[in-house]
């Protein structure tokens, strides 16, 4: 089998008009001349690996509104461009046909999902929160001590989220609604 042409092309200076395959010298096609790394004209966006806490720097390459590749950031003193298998697969984590990208709703005792709008879901969730909170809120213990809490709602998760997200979760749920069971993966 012949080696694919573009492998040889890469080895040659891009300005050359000729390319060599085996022993034969051939003219460059237009396509070959224009060949360049996919990421050449892509916008580079700086990110951080979403998996473990080593915190490897990522370069996210964006072209035409699409992420086309994700690599380790060579400038990062943490990873110097390297990534482990998980970090290297961040692209497939984000660009993946199996992702659920619609709001899904399962009614009580129903056997299927229904697709809903975000607006509808948010309204419904807000109503559920209010109803449950109003039904379960405790202002005082029997001995009179004020506790202003509800144990009727709980929240779990945060270690994969952003600091800003964690902050708003604690602020709304705890300082606003009086939910006490706000927890995350630090506990497991």
């Amino acid at each position: 089998m012949h080696e694919p042409a573009n492998r040889s092309v890469r080895a040659l200076p891009m300005l050359s008009n000729l390319m060599e395959i085996g022993s034969r010298v051939q003219p460059f096609s237009k396509e070959s001349r224009e060949k360049a790394p996919r990421i050449r004209d892509a916008k580079v966006v700086h990110s951080v690996c979403p998996y473990c806490a080593v915190g490897c720097g990522l370069n996210v390459y964006v072209k035409n509104g699409k992420v086309i590749d994700i690599e380790g950031n060579p400038d990062s003193f943490i990873n110097h461009g390297t990534l482990c298998p998980k970090g290297s697969a961040t692209f497939q984590y984000t660009v993946n046909a199996s992702r659920t990208t619609q709001v899904l709703y399962r009614a009580p005792y129903s056997d299927h999902w229904e697709v809903k709008s975000s607006e509808w879901a948010l309204d419904q969730i807000a109503q559920r929160v209010k109803k449950t909170r109003d039904e379960t809120f405790v202002e005082r213990l029997d001995d009179g001590r004020v506790i202003n809490q509800t144990q009727g709602i709980a929240s779990l998760g945060g270690a994969t989220l952003d600091i800003e997200e964690n902050y708003l979760i604690k602020k709304l749920f705890n300082a606003g609604l009086g939910i006490v069971s706000i927890e995350n993966q630090a506990r497991i």
Partner: peptide
């Protein structure tokens, strides 16, 4: 709100099992 006991994840799961927790947010 003041905490009144151990409201950690696993204890909360047990409270859920006992029907005391009605609503749950699972974020990641």
């Amino acid at each position: 709100p003041k905490i009144t006991g151990d409201h950690s994840h696993i204890n909360t799961s047990y409270a859920m099992l006992d029907g005391k927790v009605k609503g749950y947010f699972l974020l990641g």
